[in-house]
Amino acid sequence: MATIDIPADMELVYQRPESLTPAHTHYCPGCTHGIIHRLIAEVLDELGLRERTIGIAPVGCSVLAYYYFNFDMAEAAHGRAPAMATGMKRTNPDKVVFTYQGDGDLAAIGTAEIVHSANRGELFTTIFVNNAIYGMTGGQMAPTTLPGQVSTSCPSGRDVELAGFPMHMAELLGGLPGTAYVTRQAVFDVRGIRRTKKALTTAFRAQLAGLGFTMVEVLSTCNTNWHMSVLGALEWAKDKMVGYYPLGDTKVSDAVRAMLEEK
């Protein structure tokens, strides 16, 4: 990049967070994984946690997340990130541990691990990226694929009589006593992205305070496998996904509420 003179009266308001490496991601153009990665990195930077964080990448499109996060990371078997995180955090209570999981990883193959980790109140944070499709394997039906939504393994649209209903993970986990903070956010516009960042901040702060399990479900797009344009995918997501998966907190424990009021 050519050197650019920055006028002296200009101040820096946005740059790549230290918790992200300079690597270019392999994600498709317009994929919201990149936004969610960056938000996590910004929050860890702002809370000063980069050097004590251990992240766990899933199996799915974000399997290579460890190339993009600039801190210690492990790569889990499909769905097992919460068990790995449990093993890490229990032996390293001074570390900040998070799992980054997609819908197939968390809501299908890894359902047992996430439910039990949440129910035990494990002190790690899960970022659950829900884009209602299997991205990496090329667009098959996910546990969160909407009724009627077309995928390569439900080519006539998801038939709930055949395949059952999509999983509402935030509601499911929010109902468990071990969870401190569970929320569903979306990164479909600037406002939603700001809210998602705020939710991530709350989740990591609650982890630091040892208040219980925390999860931020992030509704996301997959324009490639939805066979839509980047902007068309955002519109479809706002129109259809948010209707099926309502945004907002499904659990804010009294302790988290007190933490937020304290400021």
Binding site: A76, R80, M84, A85, G87, M88, T91, A112
Partner: peptide
């Protein structure tokens, strides 16, 4: 020290994996 009864053997071995990644005897 750390003892945890896991929800399954699948979880147990992955808890071991996670802890082992941090260099503890597990």
């Amino acid at each position: 020290r750390v003892f945890l009864q896991a929800e399954s053997e699948v979880a147990s071995i992955n808890m071991v994996y996670g802890a082992a990644c941090t260099g503890v005897r597990v």
